[in-house]
Structures are given as C-alpha cells and as structure tokens.
Amino acid sequence: MIEVYPAESRYTSDLGWLQSHLSFSFGEYYDAKNANFSVMRVCNDDFLVPNRGFGAHPHSDMEIVSVVLSGSIRHEDNLGHVAISSFGEVQRMSAGTGVIHTEHNPSSTEELNLLQMWFEPHTRGLEPSYQTSRFDPDQLQGRLLPIVSQQGAENVASIQQDLTIYLSKLAAGEQIAFDQSSSRKTYLFVIDGACSVNGKTLLPRDAARVEQESGLSIVADQDVFFMLIDLP
C-alpha cells in the first residue's frame, strides 16, 4: 500500500522568522490520526531566516536527525557540543534522559532550510549523545546513499533505532529499486524534482508512506533528489 501525501497537505505554520511545513502532528497542529508513521514522529521542513533560531529547550527519549538542505545550522547543547552544519552534513541527537539545546541559523544573509525528523528510540532512558556526520554529495547520484543507520559507519551517523535514512539523486529517466521487505515500512520524501514510486507520482516535497509492499521501483520523471527511510 502506498499512500501519497502531497506537499500542500502538510500543515504550515509561519512565525515570521520560522516557516515550518509539518508532515506529522506537532505543536499547534494536532491530528490524532497523523501522529506517527511507524517510529517516525516528526518530519518538519523548516525555513529559518538569518540570525534566528530556537532558544534553549529540552528533549528526551527521542532520536532527532537534522538534514541541512541549504544554509547552515548551529547546534549547542548542555553536554558541551557546538557544531555548525551545512549541506552534506547531518546532526543526530539521542535525547535519552535529557538534553538542553539551541539551534539557530548563524548566517547573517542566507536562509536555512532543514529537514528535522524525530524517531522513537528502541529503548527509553538512554544516555544522551550527539553526533555529526558528513556525506559526499557527489556520491548521491544514481544510488541510495545511507546517511543514518542503527549500526552507523564512516560518513553514516548512528541512531538508536532499527532504521536507515538514505538520500538519492536520479537523472530524468533513471530508475532505482529498493528491496523493501513486506514486514517493513518506507517513508519517501521528494526534496526536489519528481519521481514515480511503483507508478505513483511524487512532486517536490510530496511524501509517500509505504507498507505491505515487497519491492519498490523508483523512476525519475525528471531530475529528482529524494530521501528514503527504511522503518521497522
């Protein structure tokens, strides 16, 4: 079963300094029927104006992944981590028993666009941790490039959950297969361009929630940049 969620079906909040397109219930947007997909709880497509951000706030028992699409983000936390990440870099925070952090756009000129995703951890009450990783954008073309996984690896951030996040770029007409087990779920999000997933068309910022399918065929209807998440 493939359910397509068009970009315009997302809830949009606009605080002036922050525009967020919310794929799942978050903050003022609450829909009990759209609170999660598998262990995925949040997928916020955030745009932050220069020199603004989120003040100090806590998190707990959540795996938080930030993928920068453009601009840069500065993270600071009470564990002593300070990091600035831009496109090609990923921030992963295991909030566990509690982390206080800030996130903001450190640029005085450039807008920040990031995808921030929250996942339930496999175990609650973990020791908090934070990690940045860097992937090579040149390696995205024509393949599913893992950027986050449970086991982690060089250039792949590790996460306390049985999931893998991939990024991929396909040229128009190019096709790629993902061997999804029918017992797993897949979340697919088009960042730019357009593709078809088992015949279902996805346009920029559309998402597909896939379950009970064995095998996905992703065809680029035009040059496409997308994210695929393999979920339990």
């Binding site: 100090a56 500065r74 600071e76 009470n78 509690g98 206080i100 800030t102 903001h104």
Partner: peptide, 14 residues
C-alpha cells in the same frame, strides 16, 4: 519525575 536539569536560557547563543 526522575531527574532534572537546571539552565539559564541566556547561557546559550540563540
């Protein structure tokens, strides 16, 4: 509650 963290928001750049 099991534990707590005290913080001063101004201690962080935001």
């Amino acid at each position: 509650a099991r534990s707590c963290i005290e913080y001063f928001p101004g201690d962080y750049l935001s």
